[in-house]
């Protein structure tokens, strides 16, 4: 039963991704931007322009370009169906390879931020829910609203000013590791894991040092919606009949709180998943402040350079990951709340 649900969801997901790919393909080509102009100098001759257009393949009819991209035109070369996302017009490297280098940086950053944000925000949200309308509850509520509506790039800059310029405890916002250190030998692509696998603790701590401020910025921003959600779901769970019953039966407060937390976590998982998917692209501003070579930075660079294959690849990969995360969370949801698996 569960397997069938998973398969159906995956099938729907593939259709959605295909639709999205075609939509993005046409959308960026409908725009008035002229990608060829980025590859020729100012005031190019007709011949030079035509040559540049030929080099990046935009001289072909748009239907041929689409079929090539999707991998349905074997004469043109490999495409999406063969697992090829095309070649970046700027770096001339396969888009898939570029993304495979950039993605782990972002995943590392936001996963760390999520774990810390959850560790901090869940207890705070619960604490507020225990006494609705109390002073703690009101303070937590206002903090949640505030943190959830802040310009993260500005806070990132503020952190840089205070912790790097004033206090000197953070490194300059210039990437993941000290430029004097060499990156760990790539195995998984995740710098932290690779440095540990290589047994290189110096690089590992250097990484943590560089990730300190970007992670802190994201934790601050993420704590807003997470606190708000935990508080709301917990308050609802605490007014539920089973909690009343547990209290009436004389269960200790900690046991009741554990029951309520379990009931409150189920709906919270969905929102955490949506937030995670959102942060994949939403971390771009923080990456940009700290010059982290993540997927967001790659997207900005590709978009500003009119690098169409790279843009398509980024949108496709981010959406695909979001869909997988939603699916995993729904499964987790079904495990936490068995009623859902029955339906």
């Amino acid at each position: 039963m569960l397997l069938r649900t998973i398969l159906r969801r995956l099938a729907v997901g593939v259709v959605q991704l295909l639709g999205l790919t075609v939509a993005v393909f046409f959308l960026i080509r409908l725009m008035p931007a002229d990608p060829v102009s980025r590859f020729v100098g100012i005031n190019p001759s007709k011949a030079a322009y035509a040559q540049a257009a030929k080099a990046i393949g935009v001289d072909r009819p748009i239907s041929t370009q689409l079929l090539h991209y999707l991998g349905l035109a074997p004469s043109q070369g490999k495409g999406l169906l063969q697992g090829n996302l095309g070649t970046s017009w700027v770096s001339n490297a396969p888009v898939l390879k570029d993304i495979a280098t950039a993605l782990p940086v972002t995943l590392e950053l936001i996963t760390m931020a999520f774990i810390i944000a959850l560790i901090i925000a869940v207890p705070i949200g619960m604490l507020a829910a225990l006494r609705p309308g109390g002073k703690t509850d009101k303070a937590v509520f206002v903090y949640g609203l505030f943190a959830g509506s802040q310009p993260e790039f500005w806070w990132a800059l503020l952190f840089v000013f205070v912790f790097y310029f004033k206090l000197g405890i953070a490194p300059p916002p210039l990437g993941l590791i000290n430029p004097m250190n060499s990156p760990p030998p790539p195995r998984t692509g995740f710098y932290t894991i690779d440095s540990l696998l290589a047994g290189d603790l110096t690089t590992f701590f250097d990484l943590l040092h560089h990730l300190m401020l970007p992670v802190a910025t994201l934790v601050f921003i993420l704590s807003g919606p997470i606190i708000k959600m935990v508080r709301q779901n917990m308050e609802q769970a605490l007014t539920a009949d089973f909690v009343l019953y547990a209290r009436a039966a004389g269960m200790p407060g900690s046991t009741v709180a554990r029951y309520a937390l379990r009931a409150a976590m189920a709906p919270s998982m969905t929102l955490i998943g949506i937030l995670y998917g959102f942060m994949l692209g939403g971390a771009v501003l923080v990456e940009s402040v700290f010059s982290l070579p993540g997927i967001g930075q790659y997207a900005v660079r590709s978009i500003l350079a009119f690098d169409y294959p790279a843009i398509q690849g980024v949108v496709l990969v981010i959406t695909a990951i979001s869909l997988v995360v939603y699916l995993l969370l729904d499964l987790l949801h079904a495990i936490i709340d068995p009623r859902l698996a029955q339906e």
Partner: peptide, 20 residues
């Protein structure tokens, strides 16, 4: 639904940067 599954910030960047 498909529109809503677009990564918001990146979509906005695409529309503005490529549109002018």
């Amino acid at each position: 639904d498909v529109l809503q599954s677009f990564p918001v910030f990146i979509s906005a960047m695409i529309l503005v940067a490529l549109g002018g």
